[in-house]
Design a protein around this nucleic acid. Structure first.
Lengths: 213, 213
DNA sequence: AGTCTATATTGACATCGTCAATATAAGAGG
DNA sequence: CCTCTTATATTGACGATGTCAATATAGACT
């Protein structure tokens, strides 16, 4: 997943003459896009920048993604697949079943911390094209992981029960999502700097996740 | 606040000849920007579009805001001031002190629902210039309202107490912020459509806010 | 009056997304 | 092997955008 060494066969070589056809330009563009996202933020991620970083001409992305929204959507889909993977891994790693929710919540926030640009891209609908099947599928899969995690207690389908279950699930989702968003946007930095001693994000996150226990 | 009639003195008049100097171009640009934000979303809000909508030349905003980030930041500052006002009004309207937190939470989400574009602009740091004093002040004021609302229980300044208090405050903030963000981004639409009967956003929000009681 | 300064316009440039036209390579079918 | 077709990539162009420099205008101040 983090490999990518086998994909770039002609970009940086000393041979100098790139073949007219890249061979795996789609993957190269996605990798370049993620690199740009991490380095320059989402505003630096443009079609032309991605093409440049991948060593292609400025209009090359059109063949593979059609559109800027297409490139961003495929990248977001990739992010959602990784996101699901990490959430599931965290759930599996939790020993006791009652620790699962907390473990998933921590994995949720940690993913946002590790990949802030990607996370923001995934959860900012404006620039994405939700009609893309790959994005739809990846999003649905991630949502399913979250729903399954929060809705562990089995309940009937009657309205009041359903509302209560949905409320618990959305509350848990909102809690971790809001924390991640506020943190990524630097909204908690001032608070943390005013805290005594060496209280960091982890302690605060533990407190936030553990408060409802 | 929603007036603005007295500011546009020469834009749409039948007289036709605009004076070289607008007289209140700064306010006109801000009003035009908010109109564009509501109509076309944040991607449609450009310097030139704002100038166009205000009936000025394409470089006019430079004199008042210097920069695109400047215009967006002033608009965000305006949003934060309105935000604080509504949160405080909600806190005042709450009869019992124990209802205050819930009232502020609902006001928080309602603000996001009423002004999604503005809310996203306010809480997306990428395009803002936080070195602007007006934005800083407006943000700090809003944060103070939230902090005061969540930290009603007075506690000492020792580390463990401070951590617990910060945890409660951040948890409450994260909960409403995450709910607002997910809702605005359409992430809860699928969930709501699958709910039986006529369960709407309000019921779900009540459930989310009441779950911790 | 005259001058100064804030305000607004015009024109230009680099960059961006997107399209049409063209070029190149790879594979299919003879 | 040789054509023909198709997928892939490049080039050039266009309008839109942010930003800057140069210029124009009008109100303020002396």
């Amino acid at each position: 997943m983090a490999d990518g060494s086998s994909l770039s066969n002609a970009s940086g070589g000393a041979g100098g003459k790139r073949p007219y056809h890249h061979g795996a330009l789609r993957e190269a563009l996605l990798e370049a896009s993620e690199r740009i996202l991490d380095r320059d933020g989402i505003n630096g991620l443009t079609l032309r920048a991605a093409a440049r970083e991948a060593g292609a001409s400025h209009a090359a992305p059109k063949n593979h993604f059609g559109d800027l929204a297409g490139l961003l959507s495929e990248l977001a889909a990739l992010g959602f697949r990784r996101f699901s993977f990490r959430l599931e891994a965290a759930a599996r790693a939790a020993k006791a079943p009652e620790d699962r929710g907390r473990a998933i919540g921590k994995a949720y926030v940690h993913f946002a911390i590790d990949h802030p640009g990607l996370f923001l891209l995934m959860f900012r609908g404006e620039r994405l094209d939700f009609s893309r099947p790959s994005l739809q599928e990846a999003m649905d899969a991630a949502t399913a992981v979250l729903a399954q995690a929060a809705g562990s207690g089995k309940g009937g389908a009657e309205a009041p029960q359903a509302l209560a279950r949905a409320g618990r699930m959305v509350a848990a989702w909102s809690l971790v999502h809001g924390f991640a968003m506020l943190l990524i946007d630097g909204r908690l930095a001032g608070l943390l700097s005013h805290m005594p001693g060496t209280i960091g994000i982890e302690a605060l996150l533990d407190e936030v996740l553990g408060g409802g226990r």
